[in-house]
Design a protein around this nucleic acid. Structure first.
Lengths: 213, 213
DNA sequence: GCGAAATCTTAGACCGAGTATAAAATTTGG
DNA sequence: CCAAATTTTATACTCGGTCTAAGATTTCGC
């Protein structure tokens, strides 16, 4: 299982190398200013090879998507029997934060990552597409469990909306210049508030009067 | 305010004409098989003019987005004082359905519309992007109302997820071959179930009894 | 190990979306 | 009816992405 032969190992190495070279160029010069031909040249490889590993230019930057997708799938699939999805997801996000994982969004590095992302509409569009793929995956898993296609789709989409909000909130604050440590501390509450709303709904609990505006 | 002069009227007419010509070509031959140069030729206009009205090729097909965005904004902005957003949105979607509006999703025409959409990843990506823009708009409006940026963002995203699910459910069924009339009848319950979940959350609660359907 | 089959890489030509520029056509307002 | 403002057009160009056929490399049966 680990032995995959020389060929497979070389491929993985090449893939990583190309993505790293590309990311370096993007960060220093911006996404649009770098052509795929340049990336190929800098990586010592042909243009065709780049497209062989990464179907779209955007995938060179957002190359961790598949890993994330599989991890989220595992969170849902491997949760204790009978545990609500929201509970498993909530726990997972707290762990992500505690581990200082980049995908928690509450980490200093996001500034560079996000500014490249924001500079290119194509890149943003691709990220949105990836978030959508998360929704599709969740819908599939939940539909398997319950058999209710519609309910699964709805819950999956609500869950995805919650997850993306949780991620983007700290990113936005850090990009805006807020203190990273403060953001990180606040993020615990952000996660809990988000999942509370998801679990209990946005309907007026009793009277939701604007307490004086 | 209504009188905009010859120039403005001509521009609107040209815009509509180009979009209609393009849509016709897309429906008969598929999105990717039609080039912008062809569209320009068929519309009796230069390629530059096409891009002048529609920044991206995809916008030629999804040209009602801005109208929809403004309508949804009005639904939220013009709702009776104190009314929850979900109530206004729920009512609006019931009205859309009752009026047989294409955006209700429960109408025979969606079959052609959706098959063109599905045939092109670029087109799907653009639609997802537009859904995202709805979220941004809602977040802005809600943030104005409450002042709570995070809450606004979260509610807006959940609301958007609900709306898109409500739309795609009947579309999926009709494309899959279900009877359109049946889908249309079922859609009332779909709308109510979706907004019920949004209002009351997906957390485990007692028994969610449908007040007999 | 050897040689053939399978797979990966490459060069090069090609297509189409989208941009830049400057000239030509058209509407506007005086 | 003229001059300014705006729109349309032709043309040339860049770049992402695909296609093809040939060359290089790994694999695997013998």
């Amino acid at each position: 299982m680990a032995e995959q032969g020389l060929r497979e190992r070389k491929k993985q190495a090449t893939r990583r190398m190309i993505a790293d070279v590309a990311t370096g160029l993007f960060v220093t010069r911006g996404f649009d200013a770098v052509t795929v031909a340049e990336i190929a040249e800098a990586a010592g490889v042909s243009k065709m090879t780049v497209f062989n590993y990464f179907p779209r230019k955007e995938d060179l930057y957002l190359d961790r998507h598949l890993d994330r997708l599989r991890e989220l799938e595992a969170v849902v699939r491997d949760r204790p029997a009978g545990e609500p999805v929201t509970t498993a997801m909530r726990r997972y996000h707290h762990e992500l934060l505690a581990a200082g994982h980049p995908l928690s969004g509450a980490i200093a590095g996001v500034h560079g990552f996000w500014s490249v992302l924001q500079s290119s509409p194509a890149l943003m569009a691709r990220m949105i597409e990836q978030e959508h793929e998360i929704g599709d995956m969740l819908a599939g898993v939940l539909a398997e469990e319950t058999g209710d296609e519609f309910s699964a789709r709805l819950v999956a989409n609500l869950l995805t909306a919650t997850i993306t909000t949780i991620f983007r909130t700290p990113v936005g604050r850090i990009v805006a210049g807020d203190d990273v440590e403060q953001v990180r501390r606040d993020q615990v509450a952000v996660i809990d508030r988000a999942f509370d709303v998801l679990e209990q709904g946005i309907g007026p609990r009793r009277e939701q009067v604007h307490s004086d505006g």
